[in-house]
Design a protein around this nucleic acid. Structure first.
Lengths: 210, 210
DNA sequence: GCTCTTTCGCTACGAGTCGTAGCGTAACTG
DNA sequence: CAGTTACGCTACGACTCGTAGCGAAAGAGC
């Protein structure tokens, strides 16, 4: 056992941060060109100018690597600018999420890793913390703003509030996902407006429930 | 060139229908035990008591085979019993779809083939006709019934009617899919009630739009 | 019955991928 | 400078892929 140290490993050659960048970039490029199915770790390694063994030292397998590569895109491109109203905020996040899902990297990768995660709890946890939870944050932020504006009531029961937030999150993320990847139709401003109107209308009626 | 005949192929040894059943059964069994990722066609063949070459004569690859194997489940387990009201009908179809998605075969297979289909138009078309379009039929049937009951207006603009049906379909199927496979939480009667209430409430407000 | 056609099970194959092991070298710490 | 860890490289057995070739089986048409 090595003695505990302030921050992680203490001695020896440090892992190259540049290699990390190169690998994740190469992964995204390979996803674009080959898609999830034909992507191989050997190919990613050679694209990144890195030995295949280096890849296996850092990631357990294809799924974990791709999750990290895609998660970086979510970090960069998801935010919730305040558009002044609940419906406009929903439209905004819908358009952002859709734009992300229409990229070839995420299109082919996201469903694939979720499919793998149905039989791999560790992978599911990784997806959750790296991608899903960050999306859900936007929903919570949107609710806060709407409550501050008086568009939504402050819920008294915290359990019900959590369940409602989860529901809205599944509705928004799930619908955009299905529209983009299953129905394979694009999300334009008009569709986003119709969908956001439906969600807001539904929220109003659910809010009046016991 | 063989002369045209009333129905497909005319001569030679016919394909064994029993082999088809055995192969699709074996595929579902292999999906349960191994999941999409570790399922191999060689394994399916030996489970079915069939030569691997027979498999390749009938299906182009793993994706096509799995689509057919899963589509059979959708055919068997999706219907729309008339529960007497729009919200109750939605609850019913949500619970049915969720029950289907909670089966280990469909859980691991559906997202995987959709992921593959993002780079394969023929596969996407197969999924659409074998699975998606049959689900969408339920939405159209539910709307008809609701209109007959007077719960929904008869839409005058057919284009807008189509767009609304597509929207509702993406909302229902997408939300249940996301709840089940991404959030990985079960769909119980209470959740179905909340979600159906949100959809019905949203429909009411969208119906009052220009 | 006989022939023709297609499918069947079986075996075998080259190509490609996987994930790991071993080795000598590079980089950083104390 | 000694200790430790990461690196690139090579090589490997195991596995899967999809296909080819063969003789036998199962119907259709005459």
């Amino acid at each position: 056992m090595t003695s505990a140290s302030p921050s992680g490993r203490r001695t020896g050659r440090p892992r190259s941060a540049e290699a990390d960048r190169a690998i994740l970039d190469a992964t995204r490029a390979a996803l674009v060109e080959l898609g999830w199915g034909k992507l191989t770790l050997g190919d990613v390694a050679s694209r990144a100018g890195v030995a295949k063994t280096t890849l296996y030292r850092r990631w357990a397998g294809k799924s974990e690597l791709v999750v990290d590569a895609v998660a970086a895109l979510f970090d960069e491109h998801l935010e919730l600018p305040d558009r002044g109203g609940l419906q406009a905020d929903i439209e905004g996040v819908v358009l952002q999420f859709a734009a992300l899902l229409e990229r070839p990297e995420t299109k082919t990768a996201l469903m694939a890793v979720v499919a793998e995660s149905t039989r791999d709890d560790a992978l599911r946890a990784r997806i959750r913390s790296a991608i899903v939870d960050r999306q859900k944050t936007l929903v919570l932020l949107g609710r806060e703003r709407a409550q501050a504006r008086g568009e939504l009531p402050h819920e008294s029961d915290p359990g019900a509030a959590d369940r409602n937030a989860d529901l809205i999150f599944d509705v928004i993320a799930g619908t955009v996902l299905h529209r983009t990847l299953v129905s394979a139709e694009s999300v334009d401003a008009e569709w986003a407006r119709s969908f956001a109107a439906l969600v807001v209308g539904g929220l109003a009626s659910v809010g009046t429930l016991p």
